[in-house]
Design a protein around this nucleic acid. Structure first.
Length: 257
DNA sequence: TCATGTTTAGTCCAGG
DNA sequence: CCTGGACTAAACATGA
């Protein structure tokens, strides 16, 4: 019997919904977040079926990203400019598949209005901060330094429309407490392709990510802290169930401890 | 200009 | 039959 390859679905349509395919792609990435183009690439790399009719399924996939609350659009970090945002999964959506099976979803993941509003406020604030960061960087000389008005405390509070009902900061977004650390080996199981193009990202496990650019203080520190808090809340608070690529398909992988 | 993102609307299908 | 989820199509907005 020929050994099944990871492409043994061949030209058959894989039994996964677009939501499942997107979740796979996101979870296979080191940062648990990917730009749209990388999600496309993940799917076409692994499922030849999706090398055809790209307009159709990519439109459907984009529709799913926007329509479903389980996907969260995270603005690019200011030191990583480019087109489009990064997409990740909402921490509360990690258990939306029954027993971690990609073939079954429990039910549509829907955020409550308040949760959605506070999440949107956080993301909008982050995007605003990034714009300010880039504008300031573009208009300042390298040696001019940063003024105190851009101290992190100020930047972190620069919401587009301050609302007293909002939480003071990312605390509104972040789940209650830290979770116990567990083994997490999905990267090896999914055999991600080595990528030279994207810079080595900060590990989501690191509370203080290290930016590659040696930039001066307040902007960068604020951006670092803001992104670290946001991404830690989104990606680290709830570790996903482990999935493995075995016998040419994804299946649930049980923790042995 | 094109990729990305949002929104609306329609069909199909499975399950209650 | 009704409802919800998945999928598809299309129009439109936005930003690099």
């Amino acid at each position: 019997m020929p050994r099944p390859t990871r492409e043994s679905y061949g030209d058959q349509k894989p039994p996964f919904s677009y939501i499942a395919l997107t979740a796979m792609a996101i979870w296979s990435s080191p940062e648990r977040m990917l730009p749209l183009s990388e999600i496309y690439r993940f799917i076409t790399d692994r499922f030849p079926y999706y090398r055809r009719n790209t307009q159709r399924w990519q439109n459907s996939l984009r529709h799913n990203l926007s329509f479903n609350d389980c996907f969260v659009k995270v603005p690019r970090r200011p030191d990583r400019p480019g087109k489009g945002a990064y997409w990740t999964l909402h921490p509360q959506a990690f258990d939306m598949f029954e027993n971690g099976s990609l073939l079954r979803r429990r039910k549509r993941f829907k955020l409550h209005k308040g949760d959605k509003d506070s999440l949107n406020a956080e993301l909008a604030a982050l995007a605003t901060f990034n714009r300010a960061f880039l504008a300031r960087q573009a208009s300042s000389t390298p040696s001019s330094g940063m003024t105190s008005m851009y101290a992190p405390q100020v930047a972190l509070c620069s919401r587009p429309s301050p609302d007293p009902m909002d939480g003071p900061d990312t605390a509104a977004l972040l789940p209650a407490g830290p979770r116990p650390r567990r083994a997490f080996t999905i990267d090896a199981l999914l055999e991600p392709e080595p990528r030279q193009t994207s810079p080595s990202p900060p590990s989501p496990q690191q509370p203080q990510p290290h930016y590659p650019m040696p930039l001066p203080a307040p902007y960068l520190l604020a951006a670092q802290r803001y992104h670290a808090e946001l991404l830690a809340g989104l990606q680290q608070s709830c570790l996903p169930p482990l999935w493995t690529w075995r016998d040419s398909q994804f299946s649930h992988y049980t923790l042995n401890s």
